[in-house]
């Protein structure tokens, strides 16, 4: 008997990573407010998690306002903001606890960190991890921004902190496998999740609840993960879980339902 496969299973997905703002060194589709709305329309998505390109490549904390502005203007479309944090540094940030409290008050659904790009060690953010764990907000990080040892340390020390690894590429399944095996709080999104049959492989190993649909619109071509999941070898139930269900669980504290 074949897999249950209906087109309805490709509607209502939640895009767990969009980056709003211009990309300085890549030719990718636009990501302003209207382009994000069109993206949601075109692929019948239920919402998205949006962070700011400026937070990654220009002003880590100042860029958060740009993510919130887009989220607020598309709140009726299920768009949520993802803020960026950096270590406390006089003149830049006084308190990570206060930053997370402000984020919760403003309806932010997750935080993203860029230790490599922003020039600090991941252990400089212990207060952030504790605050996020307490508030139920996920921590998002690109594979290129953090080493596997640091990731293991954080996931071990904060076992209730949901961590979403992004931009894995196609060469890291050996390391990913051990990390997923060792840490129930670790998930991986589909942004450049490019290894052959890796989605099907993890699902067959019982880990479909650790996979999160995301396109990376702004830093990747969104068609990659859209077609990857839609034309996967998974049944409709699993596609829907990866497309939306897992995000509803992970981002519930930020208001996703």
């Amino acid at each position: 008997m074949g897999l249950a496969m209906t087109d309805d299973a490709t509607t209502g997905w939640f895009d767990a990573r969009i980056v709003t703002g211009a990309h300085p060194s890549s030719l990718v589709p636009s990501t302003d407010r209207d382009a994000i709305a069109a993206h949601l329309d075109t692929y019948a998505m239920s919402g998205a998690l949006v962070s700011a390109m400026a937070s990654w490549l220009h002003d880590p904390l100042g860029g958060n306002a740009e993510a919130t502005a887009v989220a607020n203007s598309l709140s009726d479309r299920g768009v949520l903001a993802c803020w960026t944090a950096v270590p406390t540094t006089p003149g830049e940030l006084d308190s990570l606890d206060k930053l997370v409290a402000q984020a919760l008050a403003e309806g932010v659904a997750a935080f993203r960190i860029h230790p490599h790009s922003h020039g600090y060690a991941p252990d400089a953010l212990l207060d952030l991890y504790a605050a996020l764990e307490g508030g139920g907000l996920p921590l998002c990080v690109d594979a290129a921004e953090i080493g596997w040892t640091d990731l293991d340390t954080i996931a071990t020390r904060f076992p209730m902190l949901p961590i979403v690894l992004s931009n894995l590429g196609y060469r890291q399944l050996r390391r990913l496998w051990s990390a997923l095996r060792d840490h129930d709080n670790l998930s991986v999104d589909l942004v450049d999740f490019a290894a052959h049959q890796a989605v099907e492989w993890l699902a067959a190993e019982g880990l479909s609840d650790r996979l999160l649909f995301a396109t990376g619109l702004g830093v990747r071509d969104p068609g990659e993960s859209i077609v990857r999941l839609a034309w996967s070898g998974l049944d409709d139930e699993t596609v829907t879980r990866i497309g939306a269900g897992n995000a509803q669980r992970l981002f519930a504290a930020g208001g996703l339902s």
């Binding site: 290894a195 052959h196 049959q197 071509d221 068609g223 990659e224 077609v227 990857r228 034309w231």
Partner: peptide, 17 residues
């Protein structure tokens, strides 16, 4: 480039272009 990389990655770029 599959199975070096999943076929649907490249295909998605063309299908959605």
């Amino acid at each position: 480039d599959f199975p070096f990389i999943d076929q649907r990655m490249s295909l998605g770029r063309v299908v959605c272009a």
